[in-house]
């Protein structure tokens, strides 16, 4: 069942990203200017944070499969903490951008940028809640399910990051 949800989410993000790249093809100069105003350092740092949280969640799954519930809980708490750090960095990035006068209606680039990254940020928050729920019992199936959702969030960011921040 979780795979049906994961694939539905991937399709939604895929359509969103498809709309972004088509809009960029229509307004290349506008999108290049918008991209140049983004903070690549913070986004790059967030990539490292989220990839590391994926590794930590995968270790939680491995521990749960070995019936090491306490270890699995510790790994899950680590994944949630890194997820929280991702959110904090992203909010700092938003604050910096908004402080420079950039907003949802500044240009089509920023409308799609805020909607895409905001939609992804909501999934990071939802992923933390799911990990917190499965952390209570740390049973194998629950941890596998929570971690699978978390890896989907990680995968989406890995694809989204170069498309939004780097591709010219």
């Amino acid at each position: 069942m979780i795979w049906v949800l994961i694939f539905s989410e991937l399709v939604a993000f895929g359509l969103f990203l498809g709309a972004f790249v088509v809009a960029r093809a229509i307004h290349p100069a506008l999108f290049a200017a918008g991209q140049a105003a983004l903070n690549l350092d913070l986004a790059g740092l967030n990539t490292v944070v989220l990839v590391t949280s994926g590794w930590v969640a995968a270790r939680a799954t491995k521990a749960a499969r070995a019936s090491e519930r306490r270890a699995s809980r510790r790994w899950l708490l680590g994944a949630m903490a890194l997820g929280g750090l991702f959110i904090a960095i992203k909010l700092a990035e938003y604050a910096e951008e908004i402080g420079r006068g950039v907003g949802l209606e500044t240009s089509p680039f920023f409308t799609l940028y805020f909607l895409l990254t905001g939609f992804h940020l909501l999934h990071v928050g939802l992923g933390i809640i799911i990990l917190a729920v499965v952390c209570r019992r740390a049973e194998t199936v629950g941890v596998e399910t929570g971690a699978a959702f978390w890896h989907m969030v990680d995968l989406v960011w890995i694809v989204m990051f170069p498309v939004l921040y780097l591709v010219r």
Binding site: W55, A58, H151, L155, V159, P162, V167
Partner: peptide
Amino acid sequence: LGNALLLALAALKGRRIALDFMD
């Protein structure tokens, strides 16, 4: 060429996450 390389790196990362982390 740069875009092709960047997106190829993203594909490699995505495949690693799918195969090794998502199992």
